[in-house]
Design a protein around this nucleic acid. Structure first.
Length: 184
DNA sequence: AAGAAGATTCGCT
DNA sequence: GCGAATCTTCTTA
């Protein structure tokens, strides 16, 4: 469960981190998944053991960060769509000068930009890297992303398999990318 | 070698 | 809410 976990990025500019509030799953055999047509140079990291970064560039404008989610050789991943900025908000702001605070990580391309993620991070082990990694909330802290607060909806922006309920989000969060209806 | 599609964003109406 | 921008990757000739 990635909802409620933290994505942390460390680089020469400093540390930034966000609490994940929205994700989308792309499964094996899913016609909308980048892995559907088989492994290529671009998507090879989707086929790594679960927990590795798959970063791609889309529409000439945005990087998107995914976490591979299967065993070696099986292509599948989870796209990080939105987060609540928690650490390094000033740095995020300087990377995205035109965004108001609420929009810094609201959308997959924005999230990657705020964290300074690019294709150079493709293939990192997000459980071991000191550059980019995932962290669970400390035990004893309020739990987020539990069933009671989690919602699911159709995925966003797809032309194939658009109706499958594979988008997951934290109900009530102001940092979601979807429409009012999708976030209900 | 050329062309089309794409897991988006931003600015304008 | 709508449409343009922008460029990488994969497919087809």
């Amino acid at each position: 469960m990635l909802l409620g976990a933290f994505v942390v990025s460390d680089d020469l500019e400093g540390r930034t981190a966000g609490r994940i509030v929205e994700t989308e799953a792309y499964l094996p055999g899913d016609a909308a998944a980048h892995s559907y047509a088989g492994q290529t140079l671009r998507n090879r990291t989707l086929f790594m053991r679960r927990g590795h970064a798959y970063v791609y560039f889309i529409y000439g404008s945005a990087y998107c960060l995914n976490v591979s989610s299967e065993t070696v050789g099986v292509g599948a991943g989870v796209l990080l769509r939105a987060a609540e900025p928690v650490v390094g908000i000033d740095l995020m702001q300087s990377r995205r000068p035109r965004s108001v605070a609420r929009d810094l990580c609201r959308g997959p391309g924005r999230l990657a930009a705020a964290l300074g993620v690019t294709r150079a991070d493709d293939g990192l082990d997000l459980c071991a890297s000191r550059r980019l990694w995932l962290a669970a909330p400390a035990s004893g802290m309020p739990r987020s992303g539990e069933n009671a607060r989690a919602g699911e909806s159709a995925r966003i922006g797809l032309t194939k398999e658009a109706d499958r309920l594979l988008r997951f989000y934290e109900r009530g969060s102001p940092f979601l990318s979807g429409t009012r209806k999708l976030n209900a």
